[in-house]
């Protein structure tokens, strides 16, 4: 559920990449076979620059690789990265296990402090 750096980073890559419908469409197109950058751009009504920008984000997120073949640049999907989305549950399990461990440490610490406080008090009471 909650913020960890890990989830934060995760959202910045794969989740950001798939949040956009155009990027999802690009991924769908090149999932079956690599396509050259221009043929990808031709499939969309938006400007080439806009499509290139989407491809760039996909590359940055590790979902697409571009390979130079002769004079053409081919986009290839790296869908393994998408498993991060499926591993969602595992991420949360880890997160919550850490939280409960942290709660345990906190409770131990507080109870130790109280115990030592009590013993100091009772020692003082005895001295009186």
């Amino acid at each position: 559920m909650f913020a960890t750096e890990r989830l934060h980073i995760m959202r910045r890559d794969v989740f950001q990449a798939i949040a956009d419908p155009t990027r999802r469409e690009i991924l769908g197109m090149i999932a079956k076979q690599p396509l050259n950058v221009n043929s990808v751009a031709e499939q969309f009504d938006v400007s080439r620059t806009a499509v290139y920008k989407h491809i760039k984000i996909l590359i940055e997120c590790g979902l697409v690789e571009v390979e130079q073949k002769g004079r053409e640049r081919y986009c290839e999907a790296r869908l393994e990265k998408l498993s991060e989305v499926s591993e969602w549950v595992e991420q949360y399990r880890k997160l919550w296990t850490n939280k409960l461990d942290s709660l345990e440490r906190y409770l131990e610490q507080v109870q130790q402090q109280e115990a030592s406080g009590k013993s100091t008090r009772s020692a003082r009471a005895k001295r009186k």
Partner: peptide
């Protein structure tokens, strides 16, 4: 996040 469900479809297709 939006798109997470679409990813499932994509992975299935793959």
């Amino acid at each position: 996040p939006e798109g997470a469900a679409a990813v499932d479809g994509l992975s299935d297709g793959w």
